[in-house]
Amino acid sequence: MVYKIRDKETGKVYEVTIDEETNEITVYDVKTGKPVKTVNMTIEELKEAGYEVEPV
């Protein structure tokens, strides 16, 4: 599923895909559409880390 996340401190917005089964999150560069990095976190962990998470 695709989400937009926003860093509450910097205001930067990222587009991510989240595999609900493995909790693998792939972060994409919004301008190029290319993957930047992959992390292993849940949506709740993202929120605790200071991100706003919205489904696209």
Rank of each mutant, 00 (worst) to 15 (best):
M1K: 15
M1Y: 11
M1A: 12
M1C: 14
M1V: 13
M1Q: 13
M1R: 14
M1W: 10
V2D: 07
V2W: 15
V2P: 10
Y3G: 01
Y3R: 02
Y3A: 04
Y3T: 04
Y3D: 00
Y3P: 00
K4A: 06
K4I: 14
K4N: 06
K4S: 07
K4W: 13
K4Y: 13
K4D: 00
K4G: 01
K4M: 11
K4V: 14
K4H: 13
I5T: 00
I5A: 04
I5E: 00
I5D: 00
I5M: 06
I5S: 00
I5H: 00
I5R: 00
R6C: 10
R6W: 13
R6I: 12
R6H: 07
R6M: 08
D7V: 02
D7K: 03
D7H: 14
D7Q: 06
D7Y: 05
D7N: 13
D7P: 00
D7L: 02
D7T: 00
K8E: 03
K8H: 06
K8L: 09
K8S: 06
K8Y: 05
K8N: 05
K8A: 05
E9T: 14
E9W: 10
E9Y: 13
E9C: 15
E9K: 15
E9Q: 13
E9A: 14
E9L: 15
E9N: 13
E9S: 13
E9M: 13
T10A: 01
T10M: 02
T10W: 02
T10F: 02
T10N: 06
T10K: 02
T10H: 03
G11W: 03
G11S: 03
G11N: 06
G11A: 02
G11Y: 02
G11H: 04
G11Q: 04
K12V: 13
K12C: 15
K12I: 14
K12S: 09
K12N: 11
K12W: 09
V13R: 03
V13D: 04
V13F: 08
V13Y: 10
Y14I: 03
Y14H: 03
Y14Q: 01
Y14W: 12
Y14C: 15
E15Y: 15
E15Q: 14
E15K: 12
E15F: 15
E15S: 11
V16T: 01
V16Y: 04
V16Q: 00
V16A: 15
V16R: 00
T17R: 13
T17A: 07
T17P: 00
T17M: 09
T17V: 12
T17Q: 09
I18E: 02
I18G: 00
I18H: 11
I18T: 04
I18L: 07
I18Q: 03
I18S: 02
I18A: 05
D19R: 07
D19C: 11
D19T: 05
D19P: 00
D19N: 14
D19G: 02
D19Q: 07
D19Y: 05
D19M: 05
D19E: 05
E20C: 13
E20K: 12
E20R: 12
E20G: 09
E21L: 11
E21A: 13
E21I: 14
E21K: 13
E21W: 07
E21Y: 12
T22S: 09
T22E: 05
T22K: 15
T22W: 05
T22P: 01
T22Y: 06
T22F: 06
T22Q: 08
T22A: 10
N23P: 03
N23W: 07
N23T: 06
N23M: 08
E24G: 05
E24W: 14
E24M: 15
E24R: 12
I25R: 00
I25D: 00
I25W: 04
I25G: 02
I25K: 01
I25P: 00
I25E: 00
T26L: 06
T26S: 05
T26H: 08
T26E: 02
T26Q: 05
T26R: 07
T26D: 01
V27L: 15
V27W: 15
V27Q: 04
V27D: 00
V27G: 03
V27C: 15
Y28L: 10
Y28G: 01
Y28C: 08
Y28A: 03
Y28I: 10
D29I: 03
D29M: 02
D29T: 01
D29R: 01
D29K: 00
D29W: 04
D29G: 02
D29Q: 02
V30K: 12
V30M: 12
V30Y: 13
V30E: 15
V30P: 15
V30N: 11
K31N: 13
K31A: 14
K31R: 07
K31H: 15
K31T: 14
K31V: 15
T32R: 01
T32A: 03
T32K: 01
T32H: 04
T32N: 06
T32C: 07
T32Q: 03
G33N: 06
G33S: 05
G33C: 11
G33P: 00
G33D: 03
G33T: 02
K34G: 04
K34F: 11
K34N: 11
P35S: 05
P35C: 08
P35H: 08
P35I: 14
V36N: 03
V36P: 01
V36C: 15
V36D: 04
V36Q: 05
V36I: 15
K37N: 07
K37C: 15
K37L: 14
K37T: 11
T38M: 09
T38V: 12
T38F: 10
T38G: 05
V39T: 05
V39P: 04
N40C: 13
N40R: 12
N40H: 14
N40D: 04
N40P: 06
N40E: 07
N40V: 14
M41E: 01
M41L: 08
M41D: 00
M41I: 09
M41H: 04
M41T: 06
M41N: 03
M41A: 07
T42F: 01
T42I: 01
T42N: 07
T42M: 02
T42H: 03
T42C: 02
I43A: 03
I43K: 04
I43S: 03
I43R: 04
I43H: 03
I43G: 01
I43C: 07
I43Y: 05
I43E: 02
I43W: 09
E44H: 09
E44L: 09
E44V: 08
E44R: 08
E45C: 05
E45Y: 04
E45M: 09
E45R: 06
E45S: 07
L46K: 00
L46R: 00
L46M: 06
L46Q: 00
L46A: 02
K47F: 12
K47N: 06
K47L: 14
E48V: 08
E48R: 10
E48H: 11
E48Y: 08
E48F: 09
E48C: 10
A49Q: 11
A49R: 09
A49M: 12
A49T: 08
A49G: 07
A49D: 06
A49S: 12
G50H: 04
G50A: 05
G50V: 03
G50F: 05
G50R: 05
G50L: 04
G50W: 04
G50C: 06
Y51T: 01
Y51G: 01
Y51R: 01
Y51A: 02
Y51W: 15
E52I: 09
E52M: 06
E52T: 07
E52L: 06
E52K: 03
E52V: 08
E52A: 06
E52G: 05
E52C: 06
V53F: 10
V53M: 08
V53A: 04
V53L: 10
V53N: 02
V53W: 08
V53I: 11
E54F: 14
E54S: 10
E54Q: 09
E54I: 12
E54P: 03
E54A: 08
E54T: 09
E54L: 14
E54K: 04
E54W: 15
P55D: 08
P55H: 09
P55Y: 10
P55Q: 11
P55E: 11
P55L: 13
P55M: 12
V56D: 07
V56A: 11
V56R: 02
V56W: 12
V56N: 08
V56E: 07
V56Q: 09
